[in-house]
Write a protein that binds this DNA or RNA. Structure first.
Length: 578
RNA sequence: CGGGGCGUGGCGCAGUCUGGCUAGCGCACCUGCCUUGGGAGCAGGGGGUCGGAGGUUCAAAUCCUCUCGCCCCGACCA
């Protein structure tokens, strides 16, 4: 391809609203064009990279018996009402009506449609298992798109759905997807951490996130450098150090009510009582699916709303509005699990309150706190759960030795064992007849990869001060061809070189009448793996020059040898990605 | 949704506080000459309702009100 015809427009300066490196380089290189917040056009170069990534994804999906197909983005609302997601998901799901006022949604994933299709065709155990996948546009009205193409409102996702006779079969298939994902990311030049994840509203029994560690990541995960334990912060468990042993619980002093006018926050209380953060019982009220919940945790921990929500199996959860509490006779700032005897309120105690004593807690009365609180004596802590956010430096609960670190990462893929969430009788009700003629429920898994995000992640990892360094597997072109000198000989040799190399490579021939410097800069910025230069000087010694973008290595060779050398080099680079 | 920042030719910016003459600079673009190993040079040229609406004023890019858009931090995140 001649550059003059390729619609490639690089930018000398990046638009000022680009801050993260992948955003800057993709913009400058002419890969993407912003159309609206979180919505981008893929310019020809970006399009080619996405096609190449898609090819890698397809190869690996096909290898584990995936079958590609396509589902519509515009979905009838009924399907989404059937699974309940129409009601469970907030404004992120775009809802609209057609001219006849029929309700539709723009699909953010495709469980509804694929499950609908599956139930139309699955009759017998002989129809199972199978896996369908597509690479299709997803629409999510994110509250805050960010980091260029890392978090978009419209994006391409490879989404795959597997259907099984039972959980055993899903359990057997799931690791194959896991391996395929590993391979996909490796072939794109990325080493990902597969971490235990929260399955959130998707439900199901198991879930992994494939994270690329990156300072520009929008996600956090927890890592134990000692045992290698890795988990999403929403799932990670740390050891909670015991702070206070009560020496003589039998003779502990009784509860004592203390007047604490308008002193509500832990910081204010610390000052007032002159004691440490970990000697308080922190209580927070939530409204979980409309039901009041009081969560209590030791003052030096934060409540993980995700853990709490999962524990409660709640779909929607928010901090209880003040009016609701006051209406019930409770006072925010003075809450505690002590003396709560209300069937309308469930109490959840974090395991940090499993022991210790002589703490301070709210008195459930305006402007009063209790001191000398002993968990277990003054409130029931016979059942505790973990609802604490893991902290940096907490001891790893897995090995009991390492300290947990919190890292940022980009979530490239996510796999879920969905189980029967979508096939249940109160969802889409998908069954088949087993070999005894007995009706049984289909079990599902689903697996996603964000395509543009993967492209951005590769740039985050593979760049230098001059531009992008594409892995050979997904580069938009293999070779950037530059002819220096306007003589006929050079031009002819350029054409000949182009023709020869075209058999084995995708070539971008910079045929502009720009100065060499401009071409070199653009070659580096665009970041194709090899640069081939022909010049008057080289012409005289019957040589061409090759530069390897990744290593910066430059060598000369005879024109007739270039092809062979590059085939060899590219092959080597490709295998190093596996 | 809360907090912060920014909207001036395609891109990057100055001018705004303290209203005033033809709205300026670099890059890019067009024409000509020249030039081909790391974002060349010279000469000439085109392109901007200053995000939008309303208001104040003799006069608004500049002051006031409203509004839209974009970016960043946080909350949220199948």
């Amino acid at each position: 391809m001649r550059l003059s015809k390729a619609f490639i427009h690089t930018l000398y300066e990046a638009p000022k609203d680009a801050e993260v490196i992948s955003h800057i380089l993709l913009l400058r290189g002419g890969y993407i064009y912003p159309v609206a917040a979180g919505i981008y056009a893929l310019l020809p170069l970006g399009h080619r990279v996405v096609q190449n990534i898609s090819r890698v994804v397809r190869e690996e999906m096909n290898r584990i018996d995936g079958v590609e197909f396509t589902m519509p983005v515009l979905n009838p609302a009924e399907l989404w009402k059937e699974t309940g997601r129409y009601f469970d998901i907030g404004e992120e799901l775009i809802r609209l009506k057609d001219r006849k006022q029929r309700e539709f949604v723009l699909a953010m994933t495709h469980e509804e449609v694929v499950t609908d299709i599956a139930r139309k065709f699955i009759r017998s155990y002989r129809d199972l298992p199978f896996m369908l996948y597509q690479i299709q546009t997803k629409i999510r009205d994110e509250a805050r798109p960010r980091a260029g193409v890392i978090r978009l409102r419209e994006f391409l996702m490879k989404d795959a759905y597997s259907f099984h006779r039972d959980f055993d079969d899903l359990d057997e298939y799931y690791p194959k997807v896991y391996d395929a994902y590993r391979k996909i990311f490796e072939r794109c030049g990325l080493r990902t951490a597969a971490i235990e994840a929260d399955s959130g509203i998707m439900g199901g029994s198991g879930s992994h996130e494939f994270m690329l560690e990156s300072p520009n990541g929008e996600d956090q995960f927890v890592l134990c450098s000692h045992c290698g334990y890795q988990a999403n912060t929403e799932k990670a468990v740390g050891v909670k150090p015991r702070i206070q042993e009560l020496k003589d619980p039998e003779n502990a002093p009784p509860l004592e009510k203390v007047h604490t006018p308008n002193i509500k926050t832990i910081s204010d209380l610390m000052e007032f009582f002159g004691i440490n953060r970990d000697q308080f019982v922190k209580s927070v009220a939530y409204l979980a699916d409309g039901k009041l919940v009081l969560a209590a945790i030791r003052g030096d921990f934060e409540i993980s709303e995700t853990k709490l929500r999962n524990h409660l199996k709640a779909i929607k959860m928010e901090m209880a509005p003040e009016e609701v509490l006051l209406d019930k006779g409770y006072h925010p700032g003075f809450l505690s699990p002590i003396g709560i005897n209300d069937p309308d309120i469930s109490v959840v105690i974090d395991s940090s309150l499993g022991d210790g004593g002589l703490m301070v807690a709210g008195a459930n009365e305006e402007d009063y706190h209790y001191k000398n609180v002993v968990p277990g004596r003054d409130f029931d802590n016979s059942t505790t759960v973990d609802i604490a956010e893991v902290r940096k430096g907490d001891v790893c609960a897995q090995c009991g030795q390492g300290k947990l670190e919190i890292r940022r990462g980009i979530e490239l893929g996510h796999t879920f064992k969905l189980g029967t969430k979508y096939t249940d009788e109160n969802s889409m009700n998908v069954t088949y007849l087993d070999d005894h003629g007995k009706e049984r429920r289909v079990v599902m898994g689903c697996y996603g990869i964000g395509i543009e995000r993967l492209m951005a992640a590769v740039v985050e990892k593979w760049h230098d001060e001059n531009g992008i360094i594409w892995p050979v597997s997904i580069a938009p072109y293999d070779i950037y061809l530059i002819v220096i000198g306007k003589g006929e000989e050079e031009k002819n040799l350029g054409q000949k070189m182009y023709d020869t190399l075209s058999n084995d490579f995708q070539i971008l021939w910079d045929d502009r009448s720009e100065s060499p410097g401009v071409k070199f800069k653009d070659a580096d910025l665009i970041g194709v793996p090899f640069r081939v230069v022909i010049s008057t000087k080289l012409f005289k010694e019957n040589a061409v020059e090759v530069k390897v973008r990744e290593t910066g290595e430059v060598f000369k060779c005879a024109p007739e040898e270039v092809s062979g050398k590059l085939i060899e080099l590219k092959d080597k680079m490709r295998t190093s990605l596996r």
